[in-house]
Nucleic acid binder design. Structure first.
Lengths: 203, 203, 203, 203
DNA sequence: TATGAATGAGCTTTCATTCAT
DNA sequence: GATGAATGAAAGCTCATTCAT
């Protein structure tokens, strides 16, 4: 998102669609151009290369995700509320942009160093948001101190992302609210039935 | 894993390495052959195509993961113990085979439809193991009934996988025990400091 | 022959030459490209595949042959004159395009089923022209009724084609008029010295 | 046909079948071996190369054709009877060995110099049989002197071969006797209704 | 004799990229 | 600014041939 996006927006949107459907390697500039309704050469007039186009996608995608997440977080005062908001924002973002969900999982998280430093920065940038919340929560005593924030943050991201992928991409039918509630319950309260509760047998 | 693996094992191992480093599309038969120390044609003598080789990899990988997980689960009697065992087995498998960790995340989970029915079957086969544990636990009253098992199972898988990827692939230094403990705590008990607990200030 | 043949004509001509020299299977795109003075990829920019290029060749070839034959036939009024014209036109076409002569014989007539429906249609399309002439001639009483038109038509085609191949491809020296006259005599009047004729000893 | 054909016969027969179905280039040693019920290496134990196997096929094929033709010719005294016998023998040979019919037309006649000198010798060897008959007949005054024997001989061969191919390979249903009679009539007597004959309307 | 695993040259095809218009 | 014809490097795949057993 740099120049006065003349033809840039259509290209961008077509690229998101094609990259998410085919993955980076099997996506072709030809198809992106066709879907954007322009000539192939025009893409090169706006982006240096296929890779540059892709990176700009990733960057934009993570930026949008961050923006959405930060906006939702800001609305809550307490840490736990903010974590819930984060889970909700990420899930909702992935529902609306299942394109990105696939791309992020398979090409950014799933590929290790395969991509540039740039991508790595974005990845750890996003994870940091979660980490900071966790750390603040630990300091305030609302989050368990024995959790290693690094691990917990990535696990949290992974849980939401994979569940989102499963529901929005693999399954055609799903109940959004139910998924959201389950994720919040699971991540905040754990799988286990709380100790104090009298586990009333399902009679 | 079919014939009396003449050159099959070296091919297999080289393929795992290359596919995990480059991803399916950017991996070349040439490189796999070179790394296996054989001629390109020999791969085709043993596997019908690049795709077939890859699928056999996936299949074998998920099979091994399942085997390891099931073995560990079988050692425990109670459901929660089994869930802990599952988390541990998956984490340990991903540490030992970080190749597979990347391949599974980026090409199997991360790709929706892009692969064959066969892969989809394997994927949901593995998830079923988790789902069954959760359902049994809910019946026994040790797992919270309000969790949607589908979502919870995929989230659990995703949490472990992404955390493993982060530690074993992105970071060079990590403390295995710490990660394992964090995942168990997080997934079984949740992020939140248990209610009853007197949140002892971090003195 | 579709688009405003940019590089199509040179490709086409090079392809005719190479296919005729080497046959379909042993002809390489590399050589066709080199002979057309273009890059290999350019062929694929103009034709979907090697097979498509070849089929377009066959189609064009039979079309040209048909056009030439029909033009010559149209100039004569009587059936026998038309048959002579057909023999002459086919022979002359094969002399001018000995490339096609080889391709047609070896890949179209010589291959049974091996090629597409499309080729079969072209083949029987051309044979039909001869068949119709024969049938009309039988109806008019100038052609022997006991001849099976199917057999006679293919035999006539084969006689001219193989004789043409022999003269124009295998032999370097030949007398065109003599060949033409022999074919006309043979096919219209037969090998046998007419009965009534007093076989004047070769004085 | 040299060594004590130990495994040679099965190979030979399988080769004829496969070469005729697929043509030289698309036939594979693998398939020939499988169809002969032996291992691939065994073919190389009996024939120096694919080409050598193929050439031995051609040689054998033309030899068999020549033998059959000469046998039938020898039974007749007069030239015209011999020519009829030749037509009959060639047609019958092609019916029984439609394999050879295809191979001969597409790979031997249809390919010009593409094959070895050896094949050329065989080809012109067979044509010579026809030529000699024609020359003798011209000397005896039963065959028209104005026919160029070279052209007439190849035309005769081509007429029978292409008609045979058309009937035996392209069509599934055909009446052998009718085809034979038509070819004899056509080639000996010509297409044209004999002049003296009162063209009796088809009452 | 017979085998079949192994080879690698060679082929078709794809596609990111360039550049004259 | 925009185009799309042209390119050629690179990849998957086939198969005649070899050779240790």
């Amino acid at each position: 998102m740099t120049r006065a996006l003349g033809k840039r927006l259509p290209i961008f949107e077509a690229a998101v669609a094609v990259f998410s459907e085919k993955g980076f390697a099997r996506a072709t500039m030809e198809e992106i151009a066709k879907r954007a309704g322009i000539a192939k050469g025009t893409i090169y007039y706006n982006y240096r290369s296929k890779k540059a186009l892709f990176l700009s996608l990733i960057e934009e995608g993570i930026e949008r995700l961050e923006t959405a997440v930060k906006r939702e977080i800001a609305r809550k005062e307490d840490i736990l509320g903010r974590l819930e908001a984060l889970i909700g924002a990420q899930l909702s973002f992935f529902e609306e942009h299942r394109d990105y969900c696939k791309i992020l999982l398979s090409e950014v998280w799933g590929l290790g160093n395969r991509w540039e430093k740039q991508v790595e920065r974005l990845r750890s940038g996003y994870i940091s948001i979660i980490k900071e919340l966790l750390q603040k929560g630990q300091a305030e005593g609302v989050i368990r101190k024995n959790l290693e924030v690094d691990t917990a943050a990535t696990a949290l991201f992974g849980a939401v992302a994979v569940a989102a992928l499963n529901a929005f991409v693999f399954e055609t039918r799903y109940r959004y609210d139910s998924i959201l509630q389950t994720l919040k319950d699971l991540l905040l309260g754990g799988i286990r039935e709380p100790a104090g509760t009298v586990a009333a047998p399902e009679s």
